[in-house]
């Protein structure tokens, strides 16, 4: 299968995602500049981490207007699997492809550390190889990952089982201490109603080999390979 990894000016985890897809998983992966207007037949799209457009104005606020985003929207609307990691998650929120918004971390600190997240939903293309409730140890590195949604939106997101990843402690308990940024309900990652678009603040692509301290993130990429190979969550063309 083929991954498209979108490169915005200021993306800095694009090559990490490319490495995970191509070298760790042995799949095809192509870096696609944000001014391009084609995803070149990719089966899955990754919006990587970084600081697109310097995070000026708001994180992701300018990137959402990049020409490639029209194609990403079309691909997502057609059911194709889209993963937004960190800044990529912020872009998906600003673009309205996922509900809610990001605020500055409650502590005001930039948090760069390994955290534990619990996989709560396994019927997305990026988690279908995870047993439900599996804990993943993956790093976060962000200053604005404090997930917010209006009360009625939050209720809907929870009711629709759109919370895919939640910050927990190493024993799997959802505690305030395990929440690195003040996110509502310890939310680390969500999906859209169609479940094909997933965004999360932690960086699975930085945890794909044991040499990096954890290989727990690999399952997200393995899952989408399986999803695409088996024809689940393919974009209708």
């Amino acid at each position: 299968m083929k991954f498209a990894i979108v490169v915005f000016p200021g993306s800095n985890c694009d090559h990490d995602a490319h490495y995970a897809a191509e070298h760790v998983l042995g799949q095809q992966a192509e870096l696609i500049w944000h001014k391009d207007t084609s995803l070149r037949g990719a089966d899955a799209v990754v919006l990587p981490g970084g600081f697109a457009h310097g995070d000026y104005l708001r994180t992701g606020a300018i990137a959402r207007f990049s020409p490639i985003m029209q194609e990403v929207r079309r691909f997502a609307d057609a059911g194709g699997p889209v993963l937004g990691i960190c800044n990529g998650f912020q872009v998906l929120l600003e673009a309205g492809l996922l509900p809610g918004a990001m605020l500055r971390n409650a502590s005001l600190h930039f948090h760069c550390e390994h955290v534990h997240v619990k996989v709560e939903q396994t019927d997305t293309p990026f988690t279908l190889m995870c047993p439900s409730g599996r804990l993943l140890k993956i790093p976060v590195a962000h200053g604005e990952g404090n997930y917010y949604a209006e009360a009625e939106v939050l209720v809907r997101v929870e009711k629709n089982r759109q919370v895919v990843f939640r910050y927990v402690d190493s024993s799997g308990q959802r505690t305030a201490e395990a929440n690195p940024n003040g996110s509502l309900n310890n939310i680390a990652g969500i999906c859209n109603e169609g479940r094909n678009v997933v965004g999360l603040m932690p960086h699975p692509e930085r945890a794909c080999e044991l040499a990096l301290g954890s290989a727990d993130g690999l399952v997200l990429f393995e899952s989408v390979v399986k999803a695409v190979t088996e024809g689940a969550f393919a974009a209708s063309r």
Binding site: N105, L108, N146, E150, G182
Partner: peptide
């Protein structure tokens, strides 16, 4: 008004 403002609180 309903949104928490960590920066304002710190100021």
């Amino acid at each position: 008004p309903s949104v928490f403002d960590p920066q304002g609180t710190t100021v």
